[in-house]
Design a protein around this nucleic acid. Structure first.
Lengths: 293, 293
DNA sequence: GGCAAAATGCAACACTTGTTTCATCACAAC
DNA sequence: GTTGTGATGAAACAAGTGTTGCATTTTGCC
């Protein structure tokens, strides 16, 4: 992943000239170099979403006799890395001194997300997922810094179906959608210290309407904990001046995955429908589009 | 090398009870653990100087269904080691194996963020931070799934000052702000596979205007890499059906922190100003507000 | 619009894989 | 010396491997 790898460079260099399927295969190999050595070609192709033959074609395209050469190369890379293993460990430690703010932050974030694996935290996540799974409608609220988390949750959920409503809007209309919320509907509110007053107000309104309140927040003493049925707590400490939302985002992704896995068939169907439309609309591309002059 | 490996321990424990040929096979496996995952059983047997059948017999002797389990175990060991030190430190709960989807996802995310601590990745982050620090104006672009990252970056930056412009808006006006961008201004674009066509189009426009392009993306062969001055690559793999943005969000937070730390005084002043206004507007609260009846 | 070329999916191919079976062997106990 | 038991080697097996040729689709160009 770090050393200069001639085959890797070669793939990158010739990437532009590849047809789409070869690019898909090449992209997967670049992003999962070790898998090449660890699984069979057919399985690799399956994971990359291409035909087995495409892997062979990629090898030939790169001027190699066959796919086995690609695998041999990656196997060798793994063997070599084992030698440089100890050396790398040392380097990691001594570099952590001077301008290690970035490293410190990243390691801290990784640790915080890892801490969510504790049984207590997992149980809270499961509880929230259970409640979300049974909901007729899910209203999602996250203001200011928490907007990113709320929106991401909503976005992923829209790809799966249409049960979520994002409480956001211009001109101060964020909460208006709650007007049509019923008792029994769910409100998922994301809020961290400092807590946006408006989020708390809307949450309280929702509670009075008899809605089920769920929260992603940052503390046992968050104002939301008192009025919520279940709350997921994630740390927001960061080595920087600002609270981090990476753990909260991770939680929201886990929730989406948990919901999808409860009804895999429906999720897949929803994704397929989304794919169809996005494809028809030419939403995505794999290369810088040629400009029309 | 000194990680606790249950299969390895098992082999050692039962070594004494093995017939000579099994011992030969077992000895070779203990001394060349990675080879197990990297070559076929027959070749391994050849190198170990035993019959192919002996490897199968060894597996059965150890109480496993077949040789493939031995290989799978060693492949997993290689995969885990590649996830870096943080990942291994995280794996304190080696007892509970394939438990929940939630735990797997969270551990995976933590490992991916930890992997951003590699020197190559850190260097890219520093390079981007350098460029951002010197910019007159920073335009931030992230569409669809990447909106959350782009918006979060922009939001934090607005608390520090007013150098960023978020390229987003209703009615398809997202890119309009670029009209007033000058050569030398910076565009930070966030995009992952599948790449939103519109993001690529706007990036290309910006490049033609002579702007400095910086990217947070997911691959060496992302279409953005070719037209960007610097790109930060972060993995988006997830155990779920959907790409993760947690590493990208972490990167954006690190960038904000890096920028703030370059001019700590200005950052503090910006924060103070923001605090003043938000306080005056009663934006935040620490308790559920009393409803006026 | 039509054509050539490129790209892709598919299925058959020859080969290797890990496994199993069975005959042979080694060696201890009687 | 015979016998019985477990260890070993060799061969046969189905399953899966990487590859190839061919039909089909897509693409670019006049």
């Amino acid at each position: 992943m770090l050393q200069d790898d001639p085959l890797r460079d070669h793939i990158i260099a010739r990437f532009e000239d590849m047809p789409p399927q070869l690019q898909a295969a090449a992209r997967y190999i670049l992003e999962h170099p070790q898998e090449v050595a660890l699984v069979s070609m057919r399985e690799l192709a399956r994971n990359a979403g291409v035909q087995p033959a495409t892997m062979t074609r990629l090898a030939k395209f790169l001027g190699l006799p066959g796919y086995d050469d690609i695998r041999a190369h990656h196997a060798e890379a793994i063997r070599l890395r084992a030698d440089g293993f100890a050396a790398r460990a040392i380097r990691q430690d001594d570099a952590a001194g001077a301008d290690g703010l970035a490293r410190q932050m990243l390691q801290g974030l990784a640790a915080q997300i890892a801490r969510l694996c504790e049984p207590a935290a997992l149980a809270r996540i499961e509880a929230v997922a259970d409640r979300l799974a049974g909901a007729r409608r899910i209203y999602v609220l996250g203001l200011r810094s928490c907007h990113s988390v709320a929106w991401h949750f909503h976005y992923v959920m829209t790809l799966l179906g249409e049960r979520t409503v994002h409480l956001d809007g211009p001109a101060g209309t964020a909460g208006d959608a709650l007007i049509r919320a019923r008792a029994g509907d769910v409100l998922l509110v994301v809020s961290i210290n400092p807590y946006a007053l408006h989020s708390l107000e809307l949450a309280e309104i929702a509670r009075e309407k008899g809605m089920v309140l769920l929260a992603i927040t940052d503390s046992e003493v968050s104002p939301l904990v008192g009025i919520c049925e279940h709350a997921i707590l994630c740390s927001t400490d960061s080595q920087s001046f600002f609270h981090t939302l990476a753990p909260a985002l991770a939680v929201s992704e886990v929730l989406c995955a948990a919901l999808a896995s409860r009804d895999r068939a429906a999720a897949l169907e929803g994704l397929r429908a989304a794919d169809r439309q996005l494809l028809a609309l030419n939403t995505y591309a794999n290369a810088i589009p040629r400009r029309r002059l």
